[in-house]
Amino acid sequence: MLEIKELHKRYPTGDPALRGVSLSVPAGQVLGLIGPSGAGKSTLIRCINRLVEPTQGQVLLDGQDLAHAGRQGLRMARRQIGMIFQEYALVERLTVMENLLSGRLGYTRFWPSWFRRFPSKDIQLAYSLLERVGLAGMENKRADALSGGQRQRVGIARALMQRPAFLLIDEPTASLDPKTSRQIMRLILTLCAEHKLAAIINIHDVVLATEFLPRIVGLRQGMMVYDGPATQVDHKVLTDIYGDEDWSSITDRLAGNTSTIANDFDDQMASLAAVG
């Protein structure tokens, strides 16, 4: 379980990015994090694994406070946290296989990793994950030869190479077309169910978020202003998160998603039960 308690982040300029955010994510739950640009969504995700240093508060992963962990403790904790980046964060000149194996660097000694000598079990895991994300046979392609959707699939597989307990996912569909976006969201949720992973997905597309994610957390100006079911995201909630606007076109689409959300949630629970 992840617990965030009164998390604050103030940048050296004096600008506050997070103001007392508190939330918990139980094992196996995937939630959507929404809000306007500058609301603190990416900062929150990066404070969890301390790519950004929080100013105040606690980040507890299975009881360990990551916000105050020392170098060794943080290194060990990061093994449990996979991250999927908006811009994929692949090494363009390396092959798909080499990018995947970089997900095992936290478990590999320096010299073997320097010479790219990984245990056979890691290589077999990489092949298995490539097949699972639909990229079988592409292990020798360079990352810069892939489409956006393929790159995101490599990023997902690389995160799973860590065998994490928790995923942080930053705008996974921001650069993708609508069809590919839905495929990526469906893949992420299926893999989370299969591997019993909890996750936070920072996503800017409200309709996509409410279609696939049963729980929504909304940030505005660094503060949490909504935490509840996707089915209750209405005109008032959107105004609280984003400000005054005519939300009718979006709320009409959200209303059409209600049954889909319930069905997706049931499917997630059924998948978890089957895997368990």
Rank of each mutant, 00 (worst) to 15 (best):
I169D: 03
G103K: 05
R116W: 12
Y107Q: 14
D177R: 03
L130T: 05
F110D: 04
S113F: 07
R109H: 13
G134S: 05
G106N: 06
A143L: 09
Y107E: 13
F110W: 15
T95E: 12
M185E: 01
G155M: 02
L129H: 12
P119S: 11
Y107I: 01
P119C: 07
G106E: 04
A159H: 06
V96C: 07
R117C: 13
T108D: 04
P172V: 03
W114M: 15
R182D: 11
A89K: 15
A193K: 05
R104K: 13
G148D: 09
A199M: 04
L125S: 12
F166I: 02
Y127T: 11
Q150M: 11
G106A: 14
P178N: 03
L191D: 09
E131L: 00
R158E: 07
I200K: 07
T108K: 10
I123A: 02
D122P: 01
A157G: 07
K196V: 01
G103P: 12
C192K: 10
R151W: 01
R163P: 00
E92V: 00
Q86C: 06
R186Q: 14
L135F: 09
N99Y: 06
L197W: 10
L105W: 08
L160P: 13
S147Q: 02
G134H: 03
D177K: 07
S102D: 01
T173A: 03
I188W: 07
F166V: 02
S120N: 11
C192D: 09
S113H: 10
A193Q: 13
M97Y: 03
T180I: 14
T173P: 01
C192W: 09
G134A: 03
S147C: 05
I169F: 02
R116L: 12
K141D: 00
R132H: 05
Y107W: 13
G155R: 02
L146F: 08
V96Y: 04
D170T: 02
L90T: 12
G137N: 04
A199H: 04
E171Q: 06
I201R: 07
I123D: 00
G155A: 14
C192S: 11
Y88P: 11
R109V: 00
L94I: 00
